[in-house]
């Protein structure tokens, strides 16, 4: 019998702890498939963040580090400088990357560190129970913004891809979403392209993936996919912000 689909070898058999309807599982699979397809799984070293994906070190079937909150890009810098021929990636959420780890991601990009970052943006702190993130949308309710995010006191949501795209060392920057099969296919393509940038030694690459959090958004998984499309994509436009060749 011909096998038409099988689970990627890039993931372990450990059942994940993610909530029903959470899109971390899809993103894990895309990252793992990309590593297998590019033939880098066996020399890959990944860095898991603090946040919902803290246990990613149990799920990716390659050597892993668990990093302090926001510090994954610094940890990855240490790894990649020791092992320049290994494939190194960080997997971070929006609280981790856009808030506490803003300095680390900006300076890893600024130095042109040759690793890849998967940035999962679900506009909220998931693991700690739904607090406001820098990426939370205006009016969106969070446990530390119980009346909805107020621009007057908390500013507007930060667009990390646009910010990072202003840094010369960030040679690949793209925002994707995983709310529809078509978008998932585009996300996979972007992740592959981003990883190739590292393998070709061109510099730092990041793929921002718009993701859902039905649990903390307080809606069903199906509603969450729609909420992402109707609210996140208009504020966080999908597309490529930087590719090799565009960098002077």
């Amino acid at each position: 019998m011909a096998i038409v689909f099988e689970k990627t070898k890039g993931l372990t058999d450990k059942p994940t702890h993610y909530c029903p309807g959470c899109t971390h599982g899809i993103i894990h699979r895309l990252v793992a498939e990309a590593m297998v397809e590019l033939g880098v799984l066996e020399n890959a070293i990944g860095v898991a963040p603090v946040g919902c994906s803290v246990l990613a070190y149990d799920y990716f079937n390659c050597d892993m580090h668990q990093a302090a909150h926001g510090r994954a890009p610094a940890v990855a810098t240490g790894i990649k400088r020791v092992h320049p021929n290994n494939f190194v990636f960080t997997y971070q959420g929006d609280g981790d990357l856009a808030s506490i780890g803003a300095a680390e991601i900006v300076h890893a990009a600024h130095r042109g560190e040759k690793f890849s970052t998967i940035f999962v943006n679900n506009a909220i702190y998931g693991m700690t129970g739904g607090q406001m993130a820098p990426t939370t949308l205006i009016g969106q309710k969070a446990t530390t913004a119980p009346y909805g995010r107020d621009e007057a006191t908390t500013g507007k949501p930060i667009r990390m891809s646009e910010l990072l795209a202003t840094i010369d060392g960030a040679v690949f920057v793209e925002r994707v979403a995983v709310n529809t099969p078509a978008n998932i296919r585009k996300a996979k393509k972007a992740i592959l392209e981003c990883f190739k940038v590292q393998l070709e030694g061109k510099g730092f690459g990041i793929v921002e993936v718009l993701s859902t959090c039905p649990t903390n958004w307080g809606i069903t998984p199906v509603e969450a996919m729609k909420w992402l499309e109707n609210n996140m994509i208009p504020y966080y436009p999908l597309g490529n912000f930087r590719k090799p060749g565009e960098v002077e």
């Binding site: 070293i45 580090h65 990093a67 240490g78 790894i79």
Partner: peptide, 13 residues
């Protein structure tokens, strides 16, 4: 903060 976390990455490697 970043420097010691780079040390963590390098030492772990």
């Amino acid at each position: 903060v970043a420097a010691i976390n780079m040390v963590y990455g390098a030492a772990g490697s």
